[in-house]
Amino acid sequence: MVDIKMEPLIQVRDLVKVYHLGEVEVEALRGISLSIEKGEFVAIMGASGSGKSTFMNILGFLDQPTRGEYLLEGRSGANLSRDELAEIRNQKIGFVFQGFNLLSRTSALENVQLPLIYAGVPSKKRKEMAEQALFAVGLQERAHHHPGQLSGGEQQRVAIARALVNRPSILLADEPTGNLDSKTSEEIMMIFQRLNRETGITIIMITHERDIAAYGKRKILFRDGRIVEDSLS
């Protein structure tokens, strides 16, 4: 092995995001700098309005910073087109949302296939990969159920399978347990931990619950658009 300095997976420098709400300027992020290595499991905490969701949107290439630099695997999204950003999201990022955000009239299997459709994967391969992803979250037997026929925990597991199916570098979870009871929340966190441990996927999770944040290996606390605490647990 040649000894080269490993580039961090995520590098953020002096990130600033300003929203214009009519005449008023709101600074959601006021200079964020951090780096996240491959294989980390990071919990981001903070009160609402602390800027953590804005930060997450930028990390997920859903939004662009006003100033500063964000590199994912050494690559910036600053000058990329809408479609190029979509491609990066498709290839590199898996999203898990608080409200699950599954398509209601489609089966679990088809929901999981969604990123693969846009990646142009042929349908047979697509189905195989989706079945594997459902297996990874222990839902292979519910593949043909529609979201309405699944419990909240099961729906969130389908969403996790969808986030994982294209083998992204990072998994971004925005309040993944916000709509779940504590027992189901624990199940979801176990899945996150297992995936992080077994596949080495980098997980960045927003939460406002301390006990959920405790499942992560690293905890970052946001307040008023700044990082006020960054600690290993």
Partner: peptide, 11 residues
């Protein structure tokens, strides 16, 4: 929104 988030292009 979901489709765009998981990588659907405009076209």
């Amino acid at each position: 929104g979901i489709r765009i988030a998981v990588g659907a292009k405009s076209k």
